[in-house]
């Protein structure tokens, strides 16, 4: 009897998250889908977002996210390589880096927002701009991306490194021609995941990338990203809920699309490496 009850409890409670997931997705699709149309995707928002579309918002989002991804790919990959390939040589140094990354990973995004505002917007003088937002997101994405990439690099069996050296390859070529390609899939996946996180982020962008709805003209322009648009419509614009749902749907659609595209690239890449 007791066992039966606890079984029911586990089934009931444990099933909740999945049910809620379905509930959320259905709710948002239901109320958002009716708003989505071609003009919604291609027009600039008007009347605080109640009418018009979200084209400029999508463009700003893509700008912010792609700049952040590019910078963190570069810095993140280099750091991950150092952490995995040189940790024996620079033990202390790597320990400190790893520790810093752990702390960075736990910092709440709103604190990143404050930091971005104080440093990138004010000290660096970028103001409320796509660049400030992107740099703030870069700082946020790094720890996660580095961890995944490092894990991927460590998974590459040591024997391949040894073989490379035994064949008289230079250390840099061993790393970049053998180890990194072997880990490419993990690296790309890490990149997608952190890209998706960047695109989902709101709090860190509240005081860095700005709210301006116009089509951004350069990276120094302020640009309203999707998540902020959703927040603004939901909280500050009476009658904005439907539009908020529609924008949320677009955001989720973008996230899914990014996942699909990059996973298939990773697949293709791995196949191509063989030839």
């Amino acid at each position: 009897m007791k066992v039966l009850l606890s079984k029911i409890a586990v089934l009931g409670l444990g099933g909740l998250p999945i049910l809620v997931l379905a509930w959320i997705l259905i709710d948002i699709s239901y109320s958002g889908l009716s708003e989505i149309s071609w003009s919604f995707l291609t027009e600039v928002p008007t009347n605080a977002g109640r009418s018009g579309g979200i084209s400029s918002v999508i463009v700003s989002t893509l700008w912010v996210v792609s700049i952040a991804t590019m910078i963190s790919t570069f810095i993140g990959l280099a750091t991950a390589i150092i952490l995995s390939e040189l940790s024996a040589k620079w033990e202390k140094f790597c320990l400190i880096v790893r520790w810093s990354l752990d702390i960075l990973a736990g910092v709440p995004s709103i604190v990143f927002g404050l930091f971005g505002n104080a440093f990138f917007s004010q000290v660096c003088g970028f103001g409320f701009s796509i660049l400030s937002g992107a740099l703030t997101l870069t700082v946020m994405m790094l720890p996660f991306f580095i961890r995944v990439a490092e894990e991927g690099l460590r998974q590459v069996p040591n024997v391949y490194r040894k073989t490379g050296y035994a064949l008289g390859m230079r250390p840099l070529s061993v790393t970049f021609k053998i180890v990194v390609p072997q880990a490419s899939k993990a690296i790309v996946i890490g990149l997608v995941l952190s890209l998706a996180r960047a695109m989902s982020e709101t709090a860190a962008l509240l005081f860095t990338s700005g709210y301006v709805e116009r089509w951004p003209e350069s990276v120094f322009d302020s640009g309203r990203v999707l998540s902020i648009h959703i927040y603004d419509l939901a909280m500050n614009v009476p009658g904005g809920i439907e539009r908020a749902n529609a924008s949320a749907l677009v955001l989720i659609g973008l996230l899914i699309a990014i996942n699909l595209i990059i996973y298939s690239i990773a697949d293709f890449w791995q196949r191509k490496r063989v030839v």
Binding site: P17, I18, V20, L21, W23, I24, D27, I28, S31, A196, M199, S200, E201, T202, A203, S227, I228, I230, Y231, A234, M235, I241, A244, N245, A248, L251, I252, L255
Partner: peptide, 17 residues
């Protein structure tokens, strides 16, 4: 996927539901 839903979207859903 549930963990990956942007927090602003979860917030929106909480607000409306």
């Amino acid at each position: 996927v549930l963990g990956g839903i942007p927090s602003v979207v979860i917030g929106l859903w909480g607000l409306t539901t």
